[in-house]
Design a binder for these strands. Structure first.
Lengths: 168, 168
DNA sequence: CAAGATTGACAAATCAATCTTG
DNA sequence: CAAGATTGATTTGTCAATCTTG
């Protein structure tokens, strides 16, 4: 029911909803398919070939990109679009597998540092090529450089609106 | 680690991975942010204002769009990008809340029909305006009609590649 | 006491069997 | 026996407390 005027209940005083035009609807549904299927497609390749979830990969990738392979839990949560709670559970699992370890920040005991182990670094290195190839195959190679750039821009515009979230 | 050449382990004979250029990487990361945050933004509005999950909404919307408010489980699963198992669990919950009911196809007992109840139709009708307004605010109004159309096309191109899935 | 982090209870999705019908 | 569907066990994510440190 993003769709039509609908014959269903309407409690609003004046029904002033701006329904989607057929063209808008069609574009929206395409976007819905994208946001539902792309994460799944990325996830399953990663899981199948490397036994890593997409968020696990992301977390390790962010860590590996720092000098000391170290980040605060809070920073890591932010940069991976993850809640602190989710991240904590996830780091528990990675820690159990020896891919990451924790350490209390010696400068300020309120912070916990997540650190990529050597084992974690190899796991990431082993996973990367097939993952990148998959991203290239599914997304990068699907569009001209120009359209890819624009897609990225459009995605950013939408994300900025989500961040602006006046909550309704 | 979609990022760089990396100093990590590499077991491939000749390391012939085509890493992403900075521009490609930037676009890709924007897409990642989109597919992670947009579903969340849609879901939370829906949940907050109507107590419906995004998949629940989708399922009911698909049903309401048919003449008899009826669809086969298998068809519904396909059209909502959902596994049959996931859908079955979900319909259980909706059935428990009286929004949908099940019925065995009288023509062919192998099929189960999911049917939107009157109560379900009103719930959907009540949820729709705010949901559509949210989609408009976050996505439709973020882009020019021309760019929206292109975004939809690009999304479709990517989805088609996912469907083509040569599985690696 | 506020920010960072963790924890356990709960909800939802996935996976692997299993069941049923034509 | 293949396709449709369901089920229960497991995993993963969310939510609401709780704990700790400066």
């Amino acid at each position: 029911m993003t769709r039509s005027r609908s014959s269903a209940a309407r409690s609003v005083p004046s029904d002033d909803v701006q329904w989607l035009t057929p063209s808008e609807l069609s574009s929206w549904l395409s976007v819905v398919r994208l946001v539902q299927r792309l994460p799944w497609a990325i996830e399953s390749q990663l899981q199948r070939d490397s036994g890593l979830g997409i968020t696990e990969y992301q977390v390790m990738a962010m860590l590996s990109d720092t000098d000391s392979a170290t980040m605060r839990m809070s920073g890591l949560a932010e940069v991976t679009n993850s809640s602190l709670s989710r991240l904590s559970h996830l780091i528990n699992r990675l820690e159990g597998r020896g891919l990451v370890r924790r350490e209390i920040d010696s400068q300020d005991g309120r912070f916990t540092l997540a650190i990529l182990t050597e084992e974690g670094r190899s796991a990431l290195g082993a996973a990367a090529p097939a993952h990148v190839a998959n991203v290239r195959r599914l997304v990068i190679d699907a569009l001209s450089p120009e359209r890819l750039r624009r897609l990225g821009q459009d995605a950013e515009r939408i994300v900025r609106r989500i961040d602006r979230e006046p909550l309704r």
